[in-house]
Design a protein around this nucleic acid. Structure first.
Lengths: 205, 205
DNA sequence: TAAGGTATGTTTACATTGCTCACATCAATG
DNA sequence: CATTGATGTGAGCAATGTAAACATACCTTA
């Protein structure tokens, strides 16, 4: 698809080929360089600059594609989550994506979103929205915003900790169980004494 | 201290100077290169290789130092957390560290810990232990392990999301409140229907 | 104290990378 | 058919990580 080598001077669809090559190397775990993907596409070292202003621009395009893929994974088949358990499953998918495509995941989230890249901003906003409304639907609580952030952060943190080997090594299906367990545990946790609301001064000392 | 320039052929304590220079650039937000820190230390480009096998080794040393600093921040003055609110404060410190020294934070957690670096392994283990026992003390629940992971992941995720601008921009003190609110929200969240334990099949449907 | 080994620095060199600039080629449009 | 804009090429630059081979200073030990 992407490599319609017309074997003429001009390359069928270089932009797509470059992205494809980059994505491939990213998922192969190799570090990727502009020159390497140019080589892979059978084109000179500076050709990519006709399609991307610089490395960052290329990375933003990859990130956007990754965000779209993640959104697809998160919504695939599934309906909007209705129970906490559904939220757990959403998190499982999120973490699964991160573990399956770690380098891409880092590109997607590992830096401030370049506001200049429309497609990335768009894809990013869609993910935000999905997560937000998912949490909102399950927990129509007062502190909706805080809860949404917490839910996302929990999944995001689990993804990073597993990716970076900060948690005990385990096969993928165990990771899924671990994520479910984490969500369950924190949502049902109860400490001995009451938990005073930190945002509001206690009425009575 | 670190730059005892004896202005002789041999440099007072090059290893320390290099680490100091690197740390400085890291916290200044500049990208750091071996050559740059060598320059900064007033020494030839390849001198660092007498003290560090390669870039990764240098980074591991920095990471170890960072982990020690973080541990100091987390325990500074404070006693072991006793209430959920105390846990929230611990998280505030954790996220605060990440925002104050983001590049270092990434070095500390952004890759698998090099088992070859004793000091890094040691520092890493100490952090793990602190977090683990903190959660355990507050929540002596059955699912201790899952809870500990969840608590860490929540703080870790908040740190990354704030660092990478995935959450609305806000001044540092608001971030602290946001972290407290997130912990509070998720620990007190209650959905409408019961939350069936996903790890154990329901006794009665 | 002289001798020599070891730790630490220096120079040179190389491959790789991101990027710029001037030039080549091609396709479509006047 | 000629021009022009989009696309690809080549040579070249500065920076980087790293490897050799060489130089110097310190420390032990005979």
């Amino acid at each position: 698809m992407s490599t319609l080598a017309k074997d003429s001077y001009h390359h069928g669809d270089l932009r797509a080929s470059l992205l494809a090559a980059a994505m491939q190397m990213l998922e192969a775990g190799e570090p990727f360089s502009l020159r390497a993907i140019a080589r892979q596409a059978g084109v000179s070292a500076t050709a990519p600059y006709r399609h991307f202003a610089d490395r960052d621009a290329l990375e933003s395009a990859l990130a956007a594609q990754g965000l779209r893929d993640l959104l697809a994974d998160l919504t695939n088949g599934r309906e909007l989550p209705k129970s906490p358990a559904d939220l757990g499953e959403l998190a499982v998918v999120y973490v699964g994506f991160a573990l399956r495509r770690p380098a891409l995941f880092r590109l997607m989230f590992g830096n401030a979103c370049d506001e200049g890249s429309e497609e990335r901003v768009e894809a990013s906003a869609q993910i935000h929205e999905l997560l937000q409304t998912s949490m909102l639907r399950v927990f129509p609580a007062a502190e909706a915003e805080a809860l949404a952030a917490a839910g996302w952060a929990l999944a995001h943190g689990l993804a990073y900790l597993h990716m970076d080997g900060k948690l005990p090594e385990m096969p993928d299906d165990e990771v899924a169980d671990h994520v479910r367990a984490a969500f369950h545990a924190i949502l049902t946790a109860r400490a001995s004494p009451d938990y005073p609301d930190p945002t509001v001064p206690r009425r009575k000392s």
